[in-house]
Design a protein around this nucleic acid. Sequence first.
DNA 1: CTCAATTTCTTGACGATGGAAAAGAAGTGC
DNA 2: GCACTTCTTTTCCATCGTCAAGAAATTGAG
Lengths: 407, 407
Amino acid sequence: MATRPGPQPARRDPLLAAGSASSIKVFTALLTRGPMTRAEIGAATGFSGGAVTKAVQPLLASGAVRELPEQWAPSGAGRPAVPITVNAEQAYVIGVKITADALIGVLTDLRATVIESRRVALPAIEEPGHHAHTVDPDDAIMAVAELVRTLSDGQPGRADRVAHIGVAVSGDVEEITGTVRFSPLLGWRGISFAERLASLTGLPVSVENDVRALTVAEQWFGVGVTCTSFAVVTVGTGVGCGLVVGGELVAGAHGVAGELGHLAVDPREPECHCGGTGCVEAIIGEAALLDRVAVLADQRTKSWQDAVALADGPRGAQIRSVFADAGRVLGLAIASVANLIGPQRIVLTGEALAAYDLFAETMHSAYAAQCFGAARAELVVRPLQFEHWARGAAALAISRLVCGAPA
Amino acid sequence: MATRPGPQPARRDPLLAAGSASSIKVFTALLTRGPMTRAEIGAATGFSGGAVTKAVQPLLASGAVRELPEQWAPSGAGRPAVPITVNAEQAYVIGVKITADALIGVLTDLRATVIESRRVALPAIEEPGHHAHTVDPDDAIMAVAELVRTLSDGQPGRADRVAHIGVAVSGDVEEITGTVRFSPLLGWRGISFAERLASLTGLPVSVENDVRALTVAEQWFGVGVTCTSFAVVTVGTGVGCGLVVGGELVAGAHGVAGELGHLAVDPREPECHCGGTGCVEAIIGEAALLDRVAVLADQRTKSWQDAVALADGPRGAQIRSVFADAGRVLGLAIASVANLIGPQRIVLTGEALAAYDLFAETMHSAYAAQCFGAARAELVVRPLQFEHWARGAAALAISRLVCGAPA
DNA sequence: CTCAATTTCTTGACGATGGAAAAGAAGTGC
DNA sequence: GCACTTCTTTTCCATCGTCAAGAAATTGAG
């Protein structure tokens, strides 16, 4: 293997280089559960007071956290508590989501608050015999590097603070090495994405499956703050699912897990592209559903929004019943997750939420009916903003930055 | 709450009372991975040599483990290694499985090797309006206590060594307190089983859901020895599933998990007793399947064996196709587990394996077809002996005895 | 037989970790 | 100012596990 020339992978990583295990624990607690006083940190982490003081000291010294002018303290009797907060702007991360036709990139602070977001179109290659267009991996990597540069240079001095890049790709990703094993959507196979992007940008790069990245975002900054066991269900082009059990993201022994889209729910349905029969995705995935709507409306539909719009037109009743039926299937699929894993909560998100009003009722009732006993996890519906996927990638980057691991 | 009189709950537990965390780790490694030399223990647990020595010392002193006359060492150069083994007979446990019409109890050593097993019939109560008979909980507890006594007294001196009782019950069990929240099969609701049995026997008692107990057995003495992520699928009266993810048994946020029997796989099927539609259990559970066979054979069938026998009689072809169809559904259900969790292996067991030959082919092909990509976990088919459920309960007792926790 | 070489096991010093308890700090309420 | 409360810091200590040195027990070569 020849060493690739170009900017060295600088590895600016060690944000918490001085961090002992307890310091990292305290830091992540502060990062995810907002400003807290030392006493609260102790309660939240289970550490004794003394241990908290010891853990906080190096964090203060390194500028990772700072004390707040105590203002908002409830000020009862006793010595006033000093709230401590993470210096969220001490470092930035960039998250990029790669879709078949565009890149979406966000620059966020350590709390995953989006500071700037950008979308750039990707040139598509029409491949003969392939119904969807695919993306050239070299083009994509160059374009991501360019996008990273643009986001980094948005403000003077900003570039120095960008500490990590997270990339979210649909498909099978080997997270340790940041290699895209296989992405049907993009037509990629065995692309050493992280390595190549790191060498182009000089920054550490983490690559993950998009649904899993979104799940990491929930784990750190969403329902995971109060839950050790939850699922994230996404419905859009595909139907996916990220699982956190016992506080840990479920990776799957062979890198595959959360393939909710390929549960078999109806033997009458035709074969799915995966080789299975009656797959959820083959019924309520974008392609299947929009096709069905298009046939009824006698008009091509390119997005969930289009389809929703048609539900008010002629044959609206039939179109609405297509959505209602999809809602039922989705409800059953979510119930399968609840029955099998028993998570505390299930977050529902994805592009299909544009049609939420059209399928909510049947989804909820099918879900409620199919859930076994007490398995009925609380459903959290999370409408998807266009940069959410990229923010998931940013959350991935933050988690790597804080906890270390793959680069 | 009046304190119940009778023999005190003696809590003979502290088998490893002197056990520090590392000692317990070493002990469980020895228990589950057989005799090992100190060097091997170090490799297996990740401890340094010194740490192993220190951890082993108290175990040797307390008689928990012993050195073996080194015989079987591969004897290369260097100081010969001394294999160390758990004193499996230093303590016994008793595992009891409660079914609707009988108790099955086993006495095992610490390696879950069955030393003696017994089955006693339970008097059934016919309840008006209830299609199956139920069991009076008081009768059952008395009968279990009696069974424990019988197994304990099988040999002089044995009773003193019995250290823990595990009980496996179908249904919803709160393991912490050993309370049976709801068992439809037995018709129980809110029975403080562990507490009452402990007070009757003077021994610590752990109660668990039967499928989960079987899963603990696999975790400690089965596939779990080489796997940190696996599923146990049982098919019999019901269809259940125990999950181990990241080395931890999945309990479910509300105590419910692994309800594989209530995945929806076919909207054409009638409603299941759980309120869902197209549940796996309503298609291939004992009741559903035997009914279908009975109709075809024009003859009542009471067990899987009966049904299998009929497959050679008149209308055998049709009966065989019933099994084949059940195999297909089972294959899809198992694939759902594989697709969602991505375990390394899936253990298939349960009474229905009596009919394995009749459904194996369709099951395997449906499983293979429905598994998404690399999710195809290795299937381990584990024919069920009649005391396996009870041995699961014993494994539960061992795990509690060694790791502490609920009593 | 003697002597390296080798591997296993033991021991003791050391650093890291985190808890308990006491002391100190900084307020409130009277 | 004084008691009282609560938060934070400090000090001391027990535990844990690594490291390095050395003791023990064997093989195999000379």
